[in-house]
Design a protein around this nucleic acid. Structure first.
Lengths: 224, 224
DNA sequence: AGAGTGAAAACTGTTGACAATTTGAAAACG
DNA sequence: CGTTTTCAAATTGTCAACAGTTTTCACTCT
């Protein structure tokens, strides 16, 4: 049973993190992993039984997810896992591109030597993954790489928006594993981004980051 | 007493809009109008008495505002009206600039003839406000103009983000009335934006919109 | 007088119960 | 046989009470 497991987590983490945030993370996980498919209603009773908490925290968690774009609420009908159209997904890619561009431009002006080094090393590590054909690990590092850029750019809201849009788009995109070639192209673009940041060339960094995300959009679109 | 008023709204709108969203809008209003100053705790008991609802809807509304960036929650201490630092405000201006740039670029490619005409007329109307020295009205039209652009760009999330960032920045900015000269400069920039959209020149529209927001940031910064 | 202590007050976190609404299926009707 | 009506079950919306935490403030001890 899931209950005991969650209840345990509940007890240990109690009064540090509220049940609401715990439920929020759990629901987010369930949604992003497809456990709760698009369009599914978040049945409060059922969830409260499964997660071992009352309906209050679940409702609050749903509100949090609503603003994050992962669920949509209808009055008197509850919250549903959001259904993303392709058009909406494309829009999200564009918005993410714009924000990533800004983040990289900022980073080009702000980044310290150690930060630059960190990013260089991440790209090199991804290169190793390509030659070793470790696609899953490349995928993971790629996510970390981009989130880290948003984080290092210094803006809290920038990071929030970037990761939030990333989660949102994952509603539709079932983990696109790309094949060696595609990874190689992708990482070449990473190198351009990191290179521009290293040179302190904000305009170039911005352009490279935007183009990278736009290319990502195209790659994703091609898989449909 | 406020209670009767709110209770009335409650009864009339009941089961159409949930109490949560009503409370949300009311709280948002109170925050943006400075009725609840930055750093104030949203006392659930007090608010439930004033608004005439129980604490549940208030908690949920607070969660909505949390994701919108208007309040920040601390475990076991509740929700506080967010305190925006100048650095954060500058970041918000930049993000908004990036999104506005994207929206205008989209609009340059998508806008219909009537939409172009609508925007031209808004700018002309603002011009009239300047010569008539109706600053308040100009201020109002300016807000509508930008929100309308975001709306016409077609992306739902784009509009959401743009308006959300706008509200967030208002936490700090007490309505900057700018004087005739400043309005004139501002509206000249509007003309550039509209012109580029009219020409279908996405790159120019984007650049003009971004620059306009960056200039807005500078104007705001100068008033400190 | 000032720092520490401890209980009481105020508040948030959570719950279970009740009210209102929607949904789905059986029954009534054409 | 298909359509409408009605009613019960399921579900969301709201509330008030209880549990746990933080804050306040009077009191003690040095």
């Amino acid at each position: 049973m899931e209950i005991s497991n969650d209840t345990q987590a509940l007890v240990s983490a109690r009064r540090e993190r509220s049940l609401t945030t715990i439920v929020r993370d759990r629901l987010e996980q369930m949604i992003l992993q497809g456990e709760l498919g698009a369009g599914t209603r978040l049945n409060e009773q059922a969830l409260s039984k499964v997660l071992g908490v009352s309906r209050g925290p679940i409702r609050e968690a749903a509100r949090l997810l609503e603003r994050e774009g992962l669920v949509a609420s209808v009055a008197n009908q509850g919250a549903f896992v959001r259904q993303l159209s392709i058009e909406e997904a494309l829009e999200l890619y564009d918005l993410r591109a714009a924000i990533a561009g800004y983040a990289c431009a900022q980073l080009a002006e702000r980044a310290s030597a150690v930060e630059k080094r960190e990013m260089r090393e991440m790209v090199e590590e991804m290169d190793r993954c390509i030659t070793a054909e470790e696609e899953a690990r490349y995928f993971e590092l790629n996510l970390v790489f981009h989130d880290r850029i948003a984080e290092l750019s210094g803006g809290k809201r920038t990071l929030e928006l970037y990761t939030s849009l990333g989660k949102e788009v994952r509603l539709l995109r079932r983990r696109v594993l790309r094949g060696t070639e595609s990874m190689r192209f992708s990482n070449e673009e990473h190198k351009q981004i990191v290179g521009a940041i290293q040179d302190g060339d904000a305009a170039a960094a911005r352009k490279a980051a935007e183009q990278h995300h736009i290319n990502g959009k195209r790659r994703w679109l091609d898989t449909l």
